[in-house]
Design a protein around this nucleic acid. Structure first.
Lengths: 335, 335
DNA sequence: AAGGTTTCCGAAAACGTTTCCGAAACAAAA
DNA sequence: TTTTGTTTCGGAAACGTTTTCGGAAACCTT
């Protein structure tokens, strides 16, 4: 079965190709009757303009690409949905790719997107410091990009981020106020800015309350990592009075191990997570966590991108910092 | 900044456009030295073939589209990752879209994908009976498609599904064996085949054990729906001895309400869910659930699709049924 | 009736490739 | 030497659009 092209329509109606094109593009220089006639018979024939050809000549696609490092956790999907909401509204289609936390596939993803001539990109980096040269080139070549969540400072692009410092501060403060003086921080991947900021917030809270800085333990964003760290603590008999984890996943993994070893939460050890996962309010005890405005992140990223696309060129990158909330639950409540 | 085209490369080397093209396409009729020379200087100039133009002429893209109804739950993301694994391997890029459970956006997604000339589609339907005419047309026009998870019978395409009947049967049987005689089934959306099959399995187990068929309550795949149903049961004083839910979400939502009303699980009421969510093993009590081989689903779907693409035309649609597992946990344990 | 505008449309170039066809150039065979 | 074959390459058409340019017709204006 062959595709029906603009030529078929033109031939059928004995008009020129350009006239048909005009009908489909709302050009001013066409009589309304002929336009309607063309539209009608085109519809009947089942003709739809081929966007590939259109892209080739127009150099735009009405497609937006979103690249995320993973999406088995609900965080990124929720962000994507937020972005999609407003992009669909504006007539854009949203293409999603996931990099599996590998900067190499991330790079390939970007290539595919660019090759497909997306009009803009929304990206959350998988790792830092790997692709930034490529991104710099891309930005130089005027590709509209906005980064979110996982960003790197020295990239001249719009960013929408979360105030990790502030909320890590609040989360730690919450534990300090409850009387905890021996808090361990499970950090995130070292190379992520967001990890650094959460760590800084953790320290800052200690300083404010004139408490000696708490210990930090390296730990990635997974339950397994949290569990492993917890086990080590128990074996080394270095169990703190509270744990502030840089992610809900690691917090939950650790909680599980402590529970299995007979520790009572929050009596024996208190927990605070970060970046509210779906699990947080359903596990027992419910996990105190900092929740990020996922949907909002997606929406502002999308709006920023659209703005940039429309003003093309004369656009100065903005960084938008969004606010969160500390959901206090049982896992950190004083008894 | 303008794109570097094949012409630029050709001009620079004083060769023709076709020669450059040949160099990039491993054609036989080109001398190896010139080929290497071209490849080298093209690399230096930063030239990469424009896939849009290539698609236009070749009518293929090396892109595969995957469309899912949602991805805030881990199920679909995991399937996608399975598919992506094997597709990337074969040199395909994977474009993902999500329909938000709306058949209309699903339809638009399909259009976008087709317009972008994907070489094949992997789809999980959002609702049945809405788009099937469109899909029939698409299949007629030789677009390779494989459906998974949410499928509709009378579509002549490959499918990879889960044996919902069998595992609903086992899940119910598990409850019956534990002595429960008053089991309520929270069904999924009525129009989905998988809901129907799970319901049939539920009934079949009853019949095998010569127990009067249990009650069914309509309930969609969300925690809220489960909670609402649970509340009604409590208010109407129609609390059964066990609940078999068609999804973990509804099970968990219901569990929460029952716990809040002082019911002890599994003593007062037992629970079994379906389609193992990440929550299942982390809530308290841990939820017994049927787990699906998500990664495997994605992989077989991808393989089926590739096979279909390669054998083009002379391909007979297959339906592959995958196996699962019943993870028995506290929520359904006899005391 | 002449001139000037406006409205509508067709021809053709362009976007960046691939591919078909044929032509050099050269070697091998007669 | 001529013929045949092989290798390597260039020219040009094609993919399906959009867009520029120009021209014909129709409509006004004096």
């Amino acid at each position: 079965m062959k595709h029906i092209t603009i030529k078929d329509v033109a031939r059928k109606l004995n008009v020129s190709v350009s006239t048909v094109s005009r009908a489909f593009n709302d050009k001013y220089d066409i009589r309304t009757e002929t336009k309607e006639l063309i539209l009608k018979t085109a519809e009947e024939m089942g003709y739809r303009p081929n966007p590939i050809a259109r892209k080739l000549i127009q150099q735009r696609s009405l497609n937006i690409g979103i690249i995320v490092p993973e999406f088995v956790n609900s965080f990124f999907p929720e962000v994507i949905m937020g972005a999609q909401e407003i992009l669909l509204e504006k007539g854009y289609q949203v293409l999603i790719m996931q990099s599996n936390e590998s900067w190499e596939t991330e790079f390939n993803n970007v290539k595919t997107m660019v090759d497909n001539m997306v009009d803009g990109l929304i990206i959350s980096l998988s790792c830092e410091n790997q692709n930034i040269e490529n991104y710099k080139k891309l930005i130089d070549s005027d590709m509209p990009i906005v980064f979110f969540n996982r960003v790197v400072e020295d990239l001249p692009a719009s960013k929408v981020v979360f105030d990790d410092f502030k909320w890590a501060f609040f989360a730690t403060e919450h534990l300090l106020v409850q009387g905890h003086r021996d808090i361990v921080h499970l950090t995130g991947p070292k190379n992520l800015t967001l990890s650094k900021n959460r760590l800084k917030g953790f320290d800052a809270a200690h300083r404010k309350y004139k408490v000696p800085l708490g210990r930090k333990v390296a730990c990635s964003f997974s339950m397994e990592a949290g569990a492993k760290v917890a086990l080590e603590m128990i074996e080394n008999k270095e169990v703190p009075s509270a744990i502030f984890a840089a992610s809900d996943q690691s917090a939950i993994g650790a909680m599980k191990v402590f529970k299995e070893h007979g520790y009572e939460i929050p009596k024996d050890i208190a927990f605070v997570g970060f970046s509210e996962s779906r699990l947080a309010e359903h596990i027992v005890p419910a996990l105190t966590s900092v929740s990020q405005p996922t949907r909002d992140i997606g929406q502002t990223a999308a709006n920023l991108l659209l703005e940039q696309i429309e003003t093309k060129g004369l656009f100065v990158p903005q960084t938008i910092v969004l606010n969160g909330r500390l959901n206090v639950r049982e896992s950190s409540m004083k008894i």
